[in-house]
Design a protein around this nucleic acid. Structure first.
Length: 288
RNA sequence: GCCGAGGUAACUCAACGGUAGAGUGCUUCCCUGAAAAGGAAGAGGUAGUGGGUUCGACCCCCACCCUCGGCA
């Protein structure tokens, strides 16, 4: 009956998720599925603090290094792939661990988000993006007034997406997103060290990244793919060439950690823990 | 020591003779095919110090202190 179980390990950046997950996977015969929107990219290792082969300790890790930096990826693709892999791990009688800090990616699996099927449409997006926010707002007000309750009128990105779905399907965007029936029997474990500790680790990590050759990594990527690809918009990549890059990367990473916590706090199903022992106990209870 | 510029929010800087604003940072929040992205709200200053002019000064005048640049 353990065939439907899924453990989730989440937390802000630099909270120690990865190493905790490896330890737990070793203990419980598990495999790890990464829920990290940046570690999916090949060739982007230093700036994404990607786990190394050695750190994996022989535990299989999925959804890392799956696409090139100039390729695009999305929530829907993640959900599809992650779900498939999790089921496969379960079928092989191992315990899947979904581990990461990309809250939306995790939620798509936890809540079985029914993501509107409309694929991103570059042409349409470009067209919509050339309009003012006021125009987008007015258009959305006609096509999907409900959507305005959840989308801020200054958020071009999300208004464009909502309109994209409305225009292509002829149906309101807000009515095409729901939560589906539960896919798995889930235990969500959250790691939230004191924010001061997180900040300290971030400082250390960023310093270390630069020492490890972040600048060279970024230069190489730009030479190969240009600075346009979306993958280059991540923290550590967008600032690496600026002269105060270290400070900027630190600030942006700390802000990101807070955004992550703000996201995770909403999910009351998450069990917050401090260490491996507690996690181990919880999992034992959960799988038996 | 002299000349010049300046001392306003945590930082970088505005405006204005009628008790101050922005950007950044900070706090909190939102989020369904770009999510390390994108967006919202909020908390922070009685203006280097002392005096004077004025109905009223952050803004004008004087002194002192400090910073930066130039000269010596």
């Amino acid at each position: 009956m353990s065939h439907n179980k899924l453990i989730i390990i989440l937390g802000p950046t630099a909270s120690g998720k990865s190493s905790l997950a490896v330890k737990l996977a070793q203990k419980f015969n598990g495999e790890i599925v990464s829920a990290d929107s940046r570690q999916i990219y090949k060739e982007m290792d230093i700036g994404t603090a990607k786990i190394t082969k050695k750190e994996m300790q022989g535990i299989p890790h999925h959804l890392i290094d799956i696409i090139k930096p100039n390729q695009e990826f999305s929530l829907a693709q993640f959900k599809k792939k992650a779900t498939k892999i999790i089921k496969d791990i379960q079928k092989r009688d191992k315990l899947p661990f979904l581990v990461g800090g990309t809250g939306l990616y995790i939620q798509s699996v936890v809540d079985n988000l029914q993501i509107p099927k409309t694929k991103p449409n570059k042409k349409l997006r470009n067209k919509l993006e050339s309009k003012t926010n006021q125009e987008l707002y007015n258009q959305l007000k006609k096509l999907d007034p409900q959507a305005l309750k959840i989308i801020d009128k200054n958020n071009q990105r999300r208004m464009v997406r909502a309109l994209e779905v409305c225009l292509i399907t002829g149906q309101p965007f807000s009515q095409q997103k729901h939560k589906g029936p539960k896919l798995f029997d889930i235990l969500q474990i959250g790691l939230n060290p004191d924010i001061k500790i997180i900040d300290k680790r971030i400082n250390q990590r960023v310093k270390q990244m630069i020492k490890a050759g972040l600048l060279e990594e970024v230069e190489k990527l730009i030479k190969k793919y240009g600075s346009k690809p979306y993958s280059m918009s991540g923290i550590g990549y967008k600032e690496a060439l600026l002269d105060n890059s270290e400070e900027l990367i630190k600030i942006h990473t700390k802000q990101y950690a807070r955004r992550q916590m703000s996201w995770f706090r909403r999910d009351k199903k998450i069990k917050w823990i401090k260490d491996y022992k507690k996690a181990k106990k919880m999992i034992i209870n959960f799988i038996n």
